[in-house]
Design a binder for these strands. Structure first.
Lengths: 215, 215
DNA sequence: TAGATTGTTAATCGATTAACAATC
DNA sequence: TAGATTGTTAATCGATTAACAATC
């Protein structure tokens, strides 16, 4: 017992980013009542080599069975557990502009365990109203709300020039994760996790691909 | 002259995905009237090693000068050119729901050369109206509009179960790139480029990171 | 000239793919 | 038992980092 037990081997980000894809596809298979699947079939559907599928899954332990493959329902549940989807998260949306509203209207998040509790906005005439049955509060109430309602995640849907400052406020009251839609790189304490959705960068990457294919 | 001239060495996706970050930071430096920057300074601001910065930039040629560093304005322009930002793209948004509307209201895309021309929606009562001064048409007019207005890019903001079918329609009338916000993996001809924005997957990755940091 | 910093080659590290023995 | 397919080790490939000569 020299500390070699619990999940130590650092899992690479490349692997982690593939897990949601497996998860989604397995969920789809479940809804089609498919019971078992082999790494080879998975590989065909997901454009990943069978070898990599097995390598990926074995980072977390043996979920399959020789000669049989993987049980779809079991594997889906296990990957869900690995991703932390076996519990619920409370989320707020900061910035009730178009993007904030689009996210709060998105059905799928709640289904996956991400419960949106409220929105916050600087605009006093937005505050006090409701959006999609969710309350909209002024920014000054943000800290106390997070503490009282034990909010885990904040989606940052505000202009880039205010994002860093608001991020720091969120970090200071115990938020665990920031879902950052602003176009800047946030600097936050190590205990707060940031996931970026950089739309403009995404579009530029597409632009590059189009340009290349035209040559 | 045995065909060893023009841009052959295939640039890796990892490099391409870093280019927009350089571009954005250099744009910021320009607005602050910074004239020159070294790979070391870039590395500090972008959390990339100086060695990698130089390696990345030299994939495309020597943009710097020994003992001096890089000229900010020149480098920004060159990276823009590499990304294909030195021209304008015409874009339509398919699906005028919350997400589609959020994107059409986003200021930054047009600034970077991505001009949104119109929206399309199945809902007949959405069609015919205007959104943010942009026309909304019914889906049946999509193909002819794309051809007539030489549309380059379509942002797919429709439910996942209809995404593949609509994608095929878009491909068949000469679209060059799909910006896919639906949660499925699109199958398209090789000449059409797809850039995915998988929001649910992004959120699951954040969930994983939070779970890990709590252990 | 001395100092700084690039461009580029070589070394290292990590991720992907191939192969195959284990076993259901 | 024969066939299928995993788990896992070894080989390959590619990306990142280190080092340093070139040169502004």
């Amino acid at each position: 017992m020299d500390g070699a037990e619990e999940g130590k081997k650092k899992i690479s980000e490349a692997v982690i980013r593939r897990l949601p894809r497996y998860y989604r596809y397995l969920s789809e298979l479940m809804s089609r009542n498919v019971e078992r699947i082999s790494s080879k079939e998975l590989s065909r559907s997901l454009d990943i080599t069978a070898s990599q599928v097995r390598q990926d899954l074995n980072q977390f332990g043996g979920f399959g069975q020789q000669g049989y493959g993987y049980n779809v329902e079991y594997l889906q549940k296990e990957i869900g557990r690995i991703l932390g989807l076996n519990r619920r998260y409370s989320m707020i949306i900061v910035g009730a502009g178009n993007l904030g509203r689009a996210i709060c209207n998105h059905q799928n998040f709640d289904r996956r365990g991400f419960h949106i509790a409220a929105l916050f906005d600087v605009n006093p005439e937005a505050a006090g109203r409701e959006l999609n049955h969710l309350p909209v509060y002024g920014m000054e109430q943000m800290e106390s709300y997070i503490t009282e309602h034990r909010i885990d995640i904040a989606a940052l849907c505000i202009p880039s020039n205010r994002a860093q400052e608001v991020a720091m406020r969120l970090c200071s009251c115990g938020i665990k994760g920031l879902w950052n839609f602003s176009s800047i790189e946030l600097k936050v304490p190590a205990n707060v996790k940031v996931e970026n959705v950089h739309l403009t960068e995404s579009l530029m990457t597409l632009s590059y691909a189009i340009k290349e294919s035209e040559r």
